[in-house]
Amino acid sequence: MAASGAVLAGGCAARMAPPSRSGAWPQTSPASVGLKKEALEQAAHAMGQAGERQGLVVVRDGALVFERYWANDYHRAEPDWRNVSFSSGKSWGATMVGRAINLGHLALDDPASRYVDPSITGLHPATRIHHLLTMSSGGSLVVKPSSHPPRKLNDQTPPGPPDEYVRTEGKSKEPRAPEGYGIDLEPGTMFFYDGAAADHLAEIVTAATGMRSFDFMRNEVLEPLGCRNTGYQPEGVDSNGDIRIGGSMLISCRDMARLGQLYLQGGRWGSTRLLDAAFVDAATSPSPGNPDYGFLWWLNTTGEIPAAPRSMFYAAGALGQYCFVVPERRLVVATMGFGRPPLTPQRAWEILAPALLAS
């Protein structure tokens, strides 16, 4: 497995502004923001041993201070390489909803049925937007198949058709689903992690804004953040132009870090407010059903990740797709890759903590 990439040097001052709408990340040296190059190099070396990593990006005070990339059967060692998000795409989905709220198209307490009839979504009629954001909707039997893993570089098989919604036959396909899940379980009753119900937020955004969720995400979230290497797997955008909330994004580590920086800055990007501060606060605070979950963001409230601060919140996808945000350290860390064996958040922070939390 080959490694590529290096610490980014420069004399930029600490607490820099983030990149502009179309600009690249400001760059500075680790030492200028209180981090040690050698410790970061050691962390990157250890992380590169944890399965098929593609990239590691560290941002502090709005500046890119370190990055490392690896080549393997699935990835190239390039900053622009687009990885498959798996469920880390959920936090982007929450951001799309937050942007629609900021523009006045939606409200957290709105019934989902105001926008799309329950006969179409399969959601309980009492389901509200905040239930879908907190995995407490009670579920739906109208689902899409699982998102697709990345392909090996030498796999030239053309992509398949878009993944469309199908209605399951009377019971949830989710393992360990509670009784009545997707049938008559009252919204708000309990937390149950399942991206199938959250996927319907895309249809709701389409109906509320009059713009296909694919276009809304691109025009109102990705472009304002200056994302240069982000899109969707062909199968991840259905025939109605609705994206999969639960996965299927294609994204570079650098662009993944932009999401964390947006939330670290309370929803502002440069001079533009993309998200209401109240939405950001709610999204990164414990939800009623799970103290370690906000609005499609994972939290560390109970210390489930012992090596990380309890204030940390993060986007997480299967096999090790992460965007970690540590507010009191003014840090954003993105790491992605296919990840066999999977890189757990616990293991990631065992590796990162000595380099990022010692100062």
Rank of each mutant, 00 (worst) to 15 (best):
A107P: 00
G170I: 05
P150H: 03
R151F: 06
P150W: 03
K173I: 12
K152F: 05
L153Y: 02
S137R: 06
P162A: 09
P111K: 09
P162W: 09
Y181K: 02
H124G: 03
M135K: 03
G170Q: 05
P150N: 01
H130N: 08
V166C: 07
V166T: 15
P149Q: 05
T121S: 14
R128P: 04
S147M: 07
G182F: 00
A126W: 00
G160I: 05
E169K: 14
L153G: 11
K173V: 13
V142N: 07
S137I: 11
T121N: 07
H130K: 08
L132E: 00
P175H: 03
A177E: 03
P178C: 04
G160P: 07
D155F: 08
P118A: 08
A112L: 03
R176K: 14
S147H: 07
H131V: 09
D109L: 05
V142Y: 00
T127M: 00
H124P: 01
V116K: 06
P118N: 08
A177P: 09
G160H: 05
R128T: 15
T134F: 00
L132S: 07
V116M: 04
G138D: 02
V166A: 13
L108Y: 04
S137N: 07
S146Q: 06
P175G: 06
P162K: 07
A112V: 10
E179R: 05
V142G: 03
Y165T: 08
P161L: 06
P162C: 13
T157S: 15
T168G: 00
L123M: 10
A107N: 14
Y165F: 15
R114P: 10
Y165R: 11
H131I: 08
R176E: 14
P149W: 12
E164I: 08
K152V: 11
I120Q: 08
